[in-house]
Amino acid sequence: MPETNYDQEMAFFVDMQRCIGCHACEMACAECETNGQESMIHVNYVDRSKSTQTTVQVCMHCEDPTCANVCPADAIHQDEFGVVHSANTSRCIGCSNCVLACPFGVPKKMEEAELMMKCNMCYDRTSVGKKPMCATVCPSQALFFGTKEEIARMRPDSVPVNSFLFGKQEVNTKVNIMMPKGTDQLLIP
């Protein structure tokens, strides 16, 4: 990787309950140059038959990424800042293992290009000290990129949580979600 100016004081905070489904993040995401102008963020209805609630999902950049482990082509790598990068284009064989194994449902398979793509935290921006595109445009701050002190000031009744339990599997991530105070892990039944 080239020399970077990645600010490790800055972190990503997601609060799905604040998502209003405006899709501004999707439009902004497509501006990210590391995505090749494809939008990588996911905005979808949680359960359309019961509610209009939408949810937003960026890559959570797992500490031990399942996607990278199940990749048969060694195409996914994690850098020294913990950013899990989109598939190496020369290696990815388009098998979809990562798409189906990611516990957060993040990677996308570009079928005709035989390529997996995913959010890499706008590495062209974050590597030079800027904020990811989605976080700069989110009007409800469901997506926020800043310091822990800033988020603590803005959300006094919440805490950032970066530990998840999917069945028997604990997954720790670089990206946080905002949870009620006193919570240290989100259990996904």
């Binding site: 309950q17 979808n44 949810t55 993040v106 919440s158 259990l187 996904i188």
Partner: peptide, 29 residues
């Protein structure tokens, strides 16, 4: 968990988050 599609997983996460917020008595914080 892998029985769920990617969209199903995202919704499962959002539902779990919603339930955690509901249990705490406040949807926003």
């Amino acid at each position: 968990h892998m029985d769920l599609s990617p969209e199903g997983k995202r919704s499962a996460l959002a539902n779990a988050h919603l339930n955690a917020r509901k249990e705490a008595g406040k949807l926003f914080g």
